[in-house]
Design a binder for these strands. Sequence first.
DNA 1: ACAAATTGTAATGTATAGTTAACATTAAGT
DNA 2: ACTTAATGTTAACTATACATTACAATTTGT
Lengths: 69, 69
Amino acid sequence: MLKNRVKELRARYSYTQGQLGEKAGVTRQTIGFIEKGEFSPSITLSLKLAHILECKVDELFWLEGEEWK
Amino acid sequence: MLKNRVKELRARYSYTQGQLGEKAGVTRQTIGFIEKGEFSPSITLSLKLAHILECKVDELFWLEGEEWK
DNA sequence: ACAAATTGTAATGTATAGTTAACATTAAGT
DNA sequence: ACTTAATGTTAACTATACATTACAATTTGT
């Protein structure tokens, strides 16, 4: 189960979904889907988001639960 | 430009592509493609690989060049 | 209360991640 | 030299990330 802190960190910078998407090169809907956990972005997009939000990928995304181990 | 250290870390554990793929729940070809940089895996798969190879995602994958910033 | 900005959500389309199978090539062991 | 395990590579297929458009719902400012 993939979890993330995108919405929380985005709020810290007062970025709208549209602004964050623009910086990362994706649409606002893509940011919305990620925040809702509706899909698992590529590592490339994840690295860009972590860079923009000034954190490590591991702090932005993590797996929860035991099934995946 | 996405770069990675999968092949190097896989060698450290003496895993074959097949063994690493099995642990991560993907095929050996998928591991082969990732090592060659032929595609950008999902964050979910990246997190699994980092867990198996006992490192941070940021140490396993990174972006090189200036274009993406 | 009103208007504007932001976000939620759904449909449809495209690009690409990832699978499977098959065969060629290389490396390692005997 | 021979055999086997591991890897490289290609093609065809499926699943899903992400784009685009449109409109509804919610939030925010005045």
